[in-house]
């Protein structure tokens, strides 16, 4: 074990210049990138919300379908916005176990809402676009393709959240 300690303590650690460190503090380049991605996605959803009515003949669909679609997409936008705000938060807790307990509880709720809202949005999209259409072979295949893409996206989303929740499991620091 002493050899391992020596290897750890002599590990080539690298060095950042004071200018680099200052840049990180003031500009947060990676965080900006992540935030940009989140803002871009939220903006695209919001744009869909603004233009879908004219672009996809919302006036030819019943009011309840318009409300369902607008509500579901609007909820995803709102949820994304809370995600952007929360990404600015700092980790809180006296020690690692505390930090993970608080973070994990919050993450589980956020993940559940994220999955439920995406699922609701996909269902509402399918209902909206399939309302009163006359099905033919081509349209059936398009629908199957769309359903396949939605299901694949949901699987990826659920797996991603499960991985994140597992990584932050406070049980890893449970006392004995």
């Amino acid at each position: 074990m002493e050899e391992l300690k020596a290897a750890w303590q002599n590990m080539g650690a690298g060095h950042k210049s004071p200018e680099d460190l200052k840049t990180y503090l003031r500009k947060m380049p990676v965080r900006r990138g992540v935030l940009f991605q989140m803002i871009l996605e939220t903006t695209l959803f919001a744009l869909f919300l603004v233009f879908y009515y004219d672009a996809f003949d919302g006036h030819k669909k019943p009011l309840y379908l318009n409300l369902l679609l607008a509500g579901a997409v609007g909820f995803v936008v709102l949820h994304n916005l809370t995600g952007i705000v929360q990404a600015m938060n700092v980790l809180k807790g006296k020690h690692l176990r505390d930090v993970l307990t608080a973070y994990s509880a919050h993450l589980k709720v956020f993940a559940a809402i994220s999955v439920a809202s995406r699922l609701a949005m996909y269902i509402c999209l399918m209902l909206f676009f399939t309302y009163a259409i006359e099905l033919n072979t081509f349209k059936v295949w398009v629908l199957i393709g769309a359903a396949f893409i939605f299901i694949a996206q949901m699987v990826v989303l659920v797996r991603t959240w499960l991985k994140r929740i597992d990584a932050a499991d406070p049980g890893r620091f449970a006392g004995q």
Binding site: W8, H95, R97, F173
Partner: peptide, 23 residues
């Protein structure tokens, strides 16, 4: 292990992680 390899005492590791020294 990182804290152990840094040569921290069990008491210090317990303070950082939130588990008992014994654990």
């Amino acid at each position: 292990m990182a804290l152990y390899l840094e040569d921290l005492s069990y008491a210090e590791i317990a303070e950082i992680t939130g588990i008992t020294e014994n654990n």
